[in-house]
Write a protein that binds this DNA or RNA. Sequence first.
DNA 1: GGAAGTCTCAGTCTTAAGGCGGAGGAAGAA
DNA 2: TTCTTCCTCCGCCTTAAGACTGAGACTTCC
Lengths: 209, 209
Amino acid sequence: MIKVVVVDDHEIVRKGIIAYLRTDDELEVVGEAGSGNDGMKLVMDKVPDVVLMDLMMENGTGIDATAEIMRTLPDCKIIILTSYYDDEQVFPAIEAGAFSYILKTSSAEEITDAIKKAACGENVIEAKVAGKMMSKYRTAQKKAHDDLTDRELEVLICIGNGMTNQEISEKLYIGIKTVKTHVSNILSKLEVNDRTQAAVYVHRNKLIQ
Amino acid sequence: MIKVVVVDDHEIVRKGIIAYLRTDDELEVVGEAGSGNDGMKLVMDKVPDVVLMDLMMENGTGIDATAEIMRTLPDCKIIILTSYYDDEQVFPAIEAGAFSYILKTSSAEEITDAIKKAACGENVIEAKVAGKMMSKYRTAQKKAHDDLTDRELEVLICIGNGMTNQEISEKLYIGIKTVKTHVSNILSKLEVNDRTQAAVYVHRNKLIQ
DNA sequence: GGAAGTCTCAGTCTTAAGGCGGAGGAAGAA
DNA sequence: TTCTTCCTCCGCCTTAAGACTGAGACTTCC
């Protein structure tokens, strides 16, 4: 029997998953929790083989719970069960030590399958998530504005807010000549031609909103 | 007995909800579907009192299904059941004729309660969604760029992409003088001082990404 | 002590940007 | 028809922007 704990703050989802898991006689649901914190305590107490963990929970994410569980019970397999494959928390979850990552769009059979595989040490990563991981490592590239000095970044943000050189000089208490120097350096470092493109850069790279 | 149909493409969620609803002897689950299309046909066939409809489905949204059902069975109460309160589809769903709008974070009891209330003609709107509706009507205000002509909007988008007047004139096959005229008009209509601020406007108002 | 990087500022020069006023042609509304 | 709006373009003018070169003061690091 594979001992399973289900952590999900959607009661209806949790009850549903448990109801289904109970129909499989290889699995034994030894506990359920509605928050990351409760889940953590429960896991420490029950020491299950597998934890089905929802990522998006209202108070305290599944990430912290996952990390904490892995610290004390490194042999416990945590399966992240979430709704969206492009969730930003995918990577923190994997770094925290999540073993498998499946979506709620998976069929009930796929979920029980993932649990059984996890118990055998075989992990399951949703194809879409795997693809996301690939692109993640591709986009882990250096950003042009990493080359900027602190002061230059400060000036760039001003440009991104549509300020003129005059206004920037007044805001930063420096001469307009100095601002022009910074702006020139910024433009060449970002490889753009003028302040408008620099402003676009700021917004495209979400340096400000 | 209140006849209920459950439409959700997450099998595990659907099974869970149904398993729970069956424990209530006032409710009778007369069918289930894994897509908006199937759900629509099923509802036409079974004519339930209440439909529990998931919004986020992979093929065909719950919106279209809701609208279609309301056209043929206007007395049918459709309860939208979704994961997020700030979903952009909230309003289309309500316009499509959804009767209640509750979240999956609701307790199982709240869901059965919403079903019973719907059957009695009493709708339930999640507090957070209601708040969202309020702010929606507040933000339904006129945008400055609504005053722009088609051509001006076209030029504005170019500015938002960091193009110079020269580049814009080449792209639109018009003289640079004409571009300058458009730019001047745009700046005064948007009440900004220069093209950089116009570019910032474009991104802040998400005219382009 | 020297080298490198950063921040500050200066002078000069060129050009894109933008304001202001005017105007013709086309299309649609009153 | 007349009026209005939009798109197009012109000339004149002022100024902010940006490139390029140079340089002093300061900190950090070797």
